[in-house]
């Protein structure tokens, strides 16, 4: 078998709503290799959350999978019986959510929650407790043995997020999905979490799918990046290629907007005027066309395909097609 762990292959997902079908994901393709950190960047409404819930198959009742496959170790998750899927979640694929304040059960001690999630293990209670303490130590919680008996409210936000990471890694998953795990935290804690994730990734050798809208965090942590806009992948590739030589106007302008690299006080900060198109009533052609300052007649006529430009660097823009640029 190849070293590919997760393959998203032409995935399209709709939500059925009163206004008609909302086309939340369209033709999404990318893969995650073993032991690799892949970042997904995109703004509100780009489909990041739908993508995660589709991978885990934790979708709302009005979700319709229109086409495509989510292959994990070669097996299409969308076809698995629910029983098998349950066995996968939390064991082979685990997740860290955005809000550390709401991740834990407030009425159970941290230790109890860490014992509960080992329900599949045949180890004794004492062994499970030792394992829980060891994991807390691994994410840098001081005095882990004693703190197992404390409740979530006795920990700070940064600690709770680290506990969530410890719990997600306890089963030594092959894939960890991190959904904006640092958004709710201060910059200083954000850095602590990123550095901790990097260390743990090396130690456990799991792959990480890291979702964020913070470009600085993505640049620091990830090996490869997938850029999403309005339910589609517009560009993907090696993190250096994406940040130093973006091939889609959206990626380029998103990076320009980040005030982190504007070192002098700017009178006017760059923005991307306009709004994301209505996904229930999609315009024809390229979805970014209305906000793009390089749009051409062809962009209105045809949807640009996600094409490989060079090794592993893909972009969906007509500007990269020679014949169109003329």
């Amino acid at each position: 078998m190849s070293d590919t762990l997760l393959e998203i292959d032409r995935l399209s997902v709709d939500y059925e709503t009163a206004r008609g079908d909302l086309r939340a994901l369209r033709d999404i393709s990318f893969d995650v290799r073993k032991g690799e950190i892949v970042g997904i960047v995109g703004e509100s409404g780009c489909g990041k959350s739908t993508l995660i819930s589709s991978i885990l198959r934790l979708t709302a009742p009005n979700t319709r999978f229109r086409q495509g496959e989510v292959r994990f170790k070669g097996e299409d998750l969308l076809q698995l019986p629910e029983r098998r899927m349950r066995a996968l979640r939390g064991a082979d694929i685990s997740i860290v959510f955005q809000d550390p304040m709401q991740t834990h059960n407030p009425v159970l001690s941290i230790g109890q929650q860490m014992l509960d999630i080992q329900h599949r293990s045949k180890a004794s209670r004492a062994e499970k407790r030792a394992r829980a303490a060891q994991m807390l130590g691994a994410v840098g919680i001081p005095d882990p043995e004693a703190r197992l008996d404390q409740f979530p409210h006795e920990f700070s936000g940064g600690m709770r997020q680290r506990i969530a990471i410890a719990m997600a890694l306890m089963s030594e998953p092959d894939l960890l999905i991190a959904d904006e795990p640092t958004t709710a935290l201060d910059a200083t804690l954000e850095v602590q979490i990123i550095e901790r994730l990097q260390e743990l990734q090396r130690e456990f050798n799991c792959a990480i799918l890291f979702i964020s809208h913070h470009l600085g965090v993505i640049a620091e942590l990830c090996d490869r990046v997938v850029v999403m806009y309005a339910g589609a992948v517009v560009e993907s590739g090696d993190v250096r290629e994406i940040f130093h030589d973006p091939k889609h106007p959206y990626t380029r302008r998103l990076i320009d907007c980040d005030p982190g690299h504007i070192k002098e006080r700017a009178r006017v900060l760059p923005t991307i005027p306009g709004e994301v198109p209505d996904l229930a009533n999609l315009p024809g052609g390229c979805i970014f066309r209305d906000r793009c300052n390089q749009a051409m007649p062809r962009c209105a006529a045809e949807v640009p395909p996600l094409t490989q430009l060079k090794n592993g660097h893909h972009a969906a823009c007509w500007l990269n097609h020679k014949e169109a640029a003329e």
């Binding site: 910059a187 600085g216 620091e220 982190g260």
Partner: peptide, 19 residues
């Protein structure tokens, strides 16, 4: 502690201990 939107930026990061 401010992450930079540049994969090659090597910050002289000063670790803040604890919370």
């Amino acid at each position: 502690a401010n992450p930079e939107p540049d994969p090659d930026a090597r910050l002289e990061r000063i670790a803040l201990k604890g919370e």
